[in-house]
Amino acid sequence: MRVRLLDIAHARSGDKGDTANVGVIALRPEWYPVLAAHLTRDRVADHFRGVITGGVERFELPNLRALNFLLHGALDGGGTQSLKTDAQGKVYSTALLRLVLDVPDAEARAAGLPPA
């Protein structure tokens, strides 16, 4: 089943130099395992291919039902050097939420995920 990340998570992003971070938080506790299983580093790196110039790091925070992603080379140099509208990476959060996950039907039904 195809599931929009926007329907199962909320997010906030910020900057550190030329790196943007995006914290993704499950909207319901029972949806965190779905994020942990399917929102992989590779999946996110693939999503941002051509948008960022560096690699992606991923950290798990089961206590907050959240994942934290570091997107390197995301801010066109970062800070005051960047010419981008979003020089501080404030809206990378919703750019990540555009991602659509493929979740096996049984798993999606068991977790009560909303279909895309």
């Binding site: 997010a11 906030r12 900057d15 971070n21 206590n63 907050l64 959240a66 934290n68």
Partner: peptide, 26 residues
């Protein structure tokens, strides 16, 4: 939670001059 993940790096090592805080313990 949204504020906790704001500008977060490696959550297990939030380094300050006083202490290294572990966000995965919160």
């Amino acid at each position: 939670s949204e504020q906790l993940v704001y500008e977060m790096g490696d959550p297990s090592s939030y380094i300050t001059p006083d202490v290294v805080a572990d966000f995965s313990s919160i």
